[in-house]
C-alpha cells in the first residue's frame, strides 16, 4: 500500500458516495446514466469474486464489500426507488458496442485461461469503458448538474492516482500489471476532456456544466 493507491481508493469511494447522496437527497436520478451504474456493478461483481478464494488483507476485503454494496444500492435507487425520475430516453448508449468487444478481448488477452482470471480481465476492460454511457448522456443533453460533474471529477482523480501508484510500484517493487496499466491509462484518457471542462466551467462558478 502506498499513498497514491490509498488516496485513489478514497477518491473512488468519495465519488460513489457523492452520487448516492445526490440521488438520495434530491430524490431524483435525473442526468445520471443508469447504464453506467449497472456496468460498474458488473465490474465490481466480476472482479471481486476472489473474495471467496483468497484473503489479501482486512482493508482489501472491507473495501471490496463496501464497493459492491454501494454500487448495488445506486442501481437500486435508479431503477427501483426513483425510477420515475430516470431519463431513460437520454440514456440510450448501446451497451452491446461495449460488451461484445470487452468480452472478446478478455478471452484473447488474459494472464490465465481460467474462469476467475477471464472474469477479472473482463472487469478491468469493462471498467475502462463503463463511464462512456454517462459521458454520452452529457454530450447528448449538452449539460450536467455540478454535483454530477463532482462525481466524475473524483472518479477521474481516482484513475489518475492509480497511475501514480503504478509508477511508484514499478520503481519500488518492480511491480507491473500490464493489463491493468494499459486499460487504466486508456480509461484515464476518457476523463481528460472532461477535466478541462470541469476546471474551466464548473470551478469558475456556474451551477451547471454546459457544453460549448
Amino acid at each position: 500500500m502506498n499513498i497514491f493507491r490509498l488516496a485513489g481508493d478514497v477518491c473512488h469511494l468519495v465519488a460513489i458516495i457523492i452520487l448516492l447522496l445526490k440521488i438520495w437527497r434530491s430524490r431524483s436520478c435525473a442526468g445520471i446514466s443508469g447504464k453506467s451504474q449497472v456496468l460498474f456493478a458488473i465490474v465490481f461483481t466480476t472482479r471481486y469474486l476472489d473474495l471467496f478464494t483468497v484473503f489479501i488483507s482486512p482493508y482489501n476485503t472491507i473495501m471490496k464489500v463496501v464497493f459492491l454494496a454501494l454500487s448495488y444500492a445506486t442501481v437500486y435507487l435508479i431503477y427501483m426507488r426513483f425510477r420515475n425520475t430516470f431519463n431513460s430516453e437520454n440514456d440510450s448508449f448501446r451497451l452491446e458496442f461495449l460488451l461484445v468487444p470487452v468480452i472478446g478481448l478478455s478471452f484473447l488477452e488474459n494472464y490465465a485461461f481460467t474462469p476467475l482470471e477471464i472474469l477479472w480481465t473482463f472487469s478491468i476492460f469493462l471498467e475502462s469503458v463503463a463511464i462512456m454511457p454517462q459521458l454520452f448522456m452529457i454530450t447528448k443533453t449538452g449539460e450536467a448538474e455540478s454535483i454530477t460533474t463532482h462525481y466524475l471529477f473524483f472518479l477521474g482523480l481516482y484513475r489518475a492516482l492509480y497511475i501514480a501508484n503504478w509508477v511508484w510500484r514499478y520503481h519500488t517493487e518492480g511491480f507491473f500489471d500490464q493489463i491493468a496499466v494499459v486499460s487504466g491509462v486508456v480509461q484515464t484518457i476518457f476523463y481528460i476532456d472532461f477535466f478541462y471542462l470541469y476546471v474551466t466551467k464548473v470551478l469558475r462558478g456556474r451551477g451547471k456544466m454546459t457544453l460549448p
Binding site: R47, V54, I56, N60, M63, K64, F67, A112, Y162
Partner: peptide, 10 residues
C-alpha cells in the same frame, strides 16, 4: 513473471 494471478489492487 506474474505471481499466481493474485490481484491485490481494487
Amino acid at each position: 513473471e506474474y505471481q499466481d494471478e493474485l490481484h491485490d489492487e481494487l
